[in-house]
Design a protein around this nucleic acid. Structure first.
Lengths: 236, 236
DNA sequence: TGGAACCGGAGGAAAGTTCTCCACTTTTTT
DNA sequence: AAAAAAGTGGAGAACTTTCCTCCGGTTCCA
């Protein structure tokens, strides 16, 4: 009837489909390592393709990100459900926050999608709507069971995640899993009361670790280092 | 003897000196509000001057920052000394971390200088060398007095500050002092043991607060908003 | 009042971004 | 096997955003 029906999207040519997969794989990897700030040029190079190819398959960066992080969301949703399934709500919460930190540490792209609202806003908003009531139930139950501090609220979880995320980023590249030292500390702050402390399995950062963490700490690193450096040389 | 002696720097012309002051004042304000990412153009405008004037007085951005944050460092040093002076080391530590958070919230420029190593490296390194032993003593004493968890180390303080800093930034522009809710939580995680919890005086974030905090959350906000926005419009 | 000192702010230079374009290559169809 | 269709690569267009320079004109002060 309607000749312009968009219904029948003829399948991609074989090589094109293959390249599409390559792009997805490369994007997943590159985003995971470098976060969403990675360039599509970078991804294309990593996939062994030209940028043009990437842009023909995905109209823009956001579309690629969107296509990529659906499963990531599913994963998070599942983690939350698992946490709720635990009869000990506190244990569930502890596990959830730890897993979330693991996810964040393993995939900076997913972290960025979760923590920012720049990309995939709709999807995120939708997901938060689904997760929110679960979080509220989890918090409530953990409080009823007397393990979570009574003044904690579901809206505080975001801030806690952000705190943990900060330690993940801080220790990144310095010591794998260095953030693991700080998750128990934060959680000890959320418990209603306790006799001792949760044992820290992750050893402390040495002075040298600390120093290189500060060096690599990417925040506030504005202006290309090269540029600034060149200038510094001139001044001598 | 030597005609090229740099010793006698004839004083600036009156108007020039006045403008120098204006620059310093404006820079202090603008950096405090926007952090070190503020442009010298911005500062110049805020001072009612041209950029050229700023650059004649300070060879580059770093020099201006350096000239500016000496007193900030002094302030931090003093806070640390005060903390050490407190006979109750734990109380000292609590006070210190709270004050530090206040400083960070009040002056994003100083926060950036403290937490990054991009600007004023030498000065910072030097300061850290002076502060480090004080921190170690503070930690040690607080542990001896049985209030601070025994597995805490002086090198962990940086991470704790980073966590707090994350909450400061998160709540910034959403609710003044919203971060105050999280400092006691973190500190409760650092105490050796406790029967109950430290009372949170800062009320929780509402759903709307949370939403706008996410919206404003500046991290990962790459690509000019205008650009992205224009593109989004086209897609419709 | 004659310079030396100073000012403003347009715009140069560099480094990124995202995304387009089109001469070429590869696949599919006839 | 040749024509048609589909896909490719990557230089570079178009845009930001940064830091900083330059120089015609203005202001101060000896």
């Amino acid at each position: 009837m309607d000749p312009t029906t968009p219904a029948a999207p003829r399948p991609l040519r074989r090589d094109a489909e293959l390249n599409r997969q390559r792009i997805l794989v490369a994007a997943k990897q590159v985003f995971a390592e470098r976060g969403l700030e990675a360039t599509l040029d970078e991804i294309a190079k990593h996939a062994g393709l030209g940028v043009g190819t990437v842009y023909r398959r995905f109209p823009n960066k956001e579309a690629l990100i969107d296509a990529l992080f659906e499963e990531g969301f599913a994963q998070i949703l599942e983690l939350t459900e698992q946490a709720l399934a635990n009869p000990d709500a506190w244990e569930g919460l502890v596990g959830l926050l730890t897993r979330m930190a693991e996810v964040q540490a393993a995939d900076f792209g997913l972290r960025d999608v979760m923590l920012s609202e720049t990309y995939g806003r709709d999807r995120i908003a939708q997901m938060r709507d689904r997760i929110k009531p679960m979080m509220e139930r989890l918090v409530e139950r953990a409080q009823e069971q007397g393990r979570l501090r009574a003044d904690f609220r579901a809206t505080d979880i975001m801030a806690v995640q952000l705190m943990i995320s900060a330690t993940v980023e801080f220790t990144h590249g310095v010591r794998d899993g260095g953030w693991r030292r700080y998750v128990p500390m934060v959680l000890d702050g959320l418990s209603a009361r306790r006799d001792g402390v949760t044992e820290l399995t992750e050893p402390e950062l040495g002075d040298d670790d600390l120093h290189s963490a500060m060096q690599c700490w990417p925040r506030y690193r504005r202006g290309s280092a090269a540029h600034t450096e060149a200038r510094r040389q001139q001044d001598l």
